[in-house]
Simulated assay, not measured.
Amino acid sequence: MSVIEARGLRKEFTVRVKRSRLRREKRVVRAVDGVDLTVERGEMLGYIGPNGAGKSTTLKMMTGVLMPSGGEVRVCGYTPVPQRTKLARRIGVVFGQRSQLWWDLPLRDSFDLLRHIFRVPADDHASRLRRCRSLLDLDEFLEIPVRQLSLGQRMRGELTAALLHGPEVLFLDEPTIGLDVVSKQAVRSFLTEVGERGDTTLVLTTHDLADIERLCKRLVVIDHGRVVHDGTIDALHARYGSRRRVVVDLDEPVASFGDATVEADGRRLVFEVDGSAAAVVARLGGLPGLRDIAILEPDIEDVVARLYKTATEDAP
């Protein structure tokens, strides 16, 4: 069953552009330009794009924050803006730059207030909070006012707040922005566990492609307000020619070795291969002075950069 359906979704903004010292003229900017998107229940969807591509605008239309300029969108069976109150009980939202916690209250009190706002039964609230406390290690700062929490602690609190009412869809806009490595890992592990349960659909926008690789099976790429890729990460690699790298370290330097690139004063060979690296590894078996072999997977950032470049060149 589809929990999100968008057809021809558009959002336009009118801006004033300076033309001279005394003259400004209005210009219409199309932030989202005809997005078609269907998300099934339990999916983990990565929704990415460069700055200004329309990612956050799309999420704001899906959550009822912005009214679309055209097209249709339904989330959990509701039209977001006119039915925003009903929709709010069915979705959770985490924006990296916004907070739904009370700044001067201890974290535990924020959770208790949200229980009353969403009218969550006490037993359900307690059960979900116990699970989040365990997975996100909340106990050490539950009694601390939100304003005194570190960014990583606050983000763990935001994730908990978004899930305490049992949403069907969780929208995440840059949930790991600014976090240290330890906090990022905690958030990723938690979201992986949430996604694997299959009862919550995750829609994630981020500039951190490691989040996408570790969390999402499906990737939608948007550029200039239009969808330019919708499929798996593997399909993205295949479509834009990403290649594996086989890195070989040697004890003794060599001048050349077939089609390899020679680096590190001749002590390192680098091969670029399509698909399996077995043939290259077999060739190296009898190489004297072989110290180590590493197979490096394609870097999704390079793939997406090529996709953006192609989309820009093809844009009208």
Rank of each mutant, 00 (worst) to 15 (best):
F118K: 03
D137W: 00
F118M: 03
R131A: 12
G54F: 08
V3W: 03
K309V: 10
R147N: 12
G231C: 06
D123Y: 02
L296V: 13
G198A: 04
G49M: 06
D124P: 00
F111W: 00
P68I: 03
D112C: 02
E143F: 04
E12T: 11
I293H: 05
R268E: 14
Y308W: 09
R98L: 11
H116L: 15
V29D: 10
R133K: 14
T192D: 15
M44H: 12
V32D: 09
R16Q: 14
L151Q: 15
C132P: 00
D249L: 00
L202R: 02
E25Q: 14
L105P: 05
D251T: 13
A88R: 13
G258Y: 05
T14K: 10
A31I: 06
D211K: 05
M62H: 05
L219N: 06
G178Y: 01
R90C: 10
G52M: 09
L9A: 04
R197W: 04
I4S: 03
L219S: 08
A264Q: 13
L114T: 11
T200E: 08
V75F: 06
G231N: 07
V32T: 12
T261E: 15
H165A: 05
A88D: 10
V120K: 04
M44G: 12
M67P: 00
R74P: 03
R21P: 08
C132I: 03
R119Y: 02
P80H: 00
G289D: 10
G157D: 11
D173F: 03
L287A: 01
K55H: 14
G258H: 04
E213D: 15
S2R: 09
Q148S: 15
L250C: 08
G92E: 07
E272W: 09
L296S: 04
T160Q: 12
L179Q: 01
G225R: 00
A282D: 15
G152W: 01
L107A: 15
F111V: 02
L37E: 05
I233T: 15
V120H: 06
V75E: 08
L37F: 06
R268D: 12
E196K: 13
A31W: 02
V93W: 05
L107E: 10
T200Y: 01
R244H: 14
R291P: 02
L129G: 03
A31D: 07
K55Q: 14
H224S: 12
R267N: 11
A235M: 11
G8S: 11
V39N: 02
K60T: 11
L129T: 08
L202N: 01
D251P: 02
V187E: 01
R218L: 10
V304G: 01
R27H: 12
R131C: 04
S99P: 05
V15R: 13
A122R: 14
S189V: 10
R7Y: 09
E143H: 14
G198N: 08
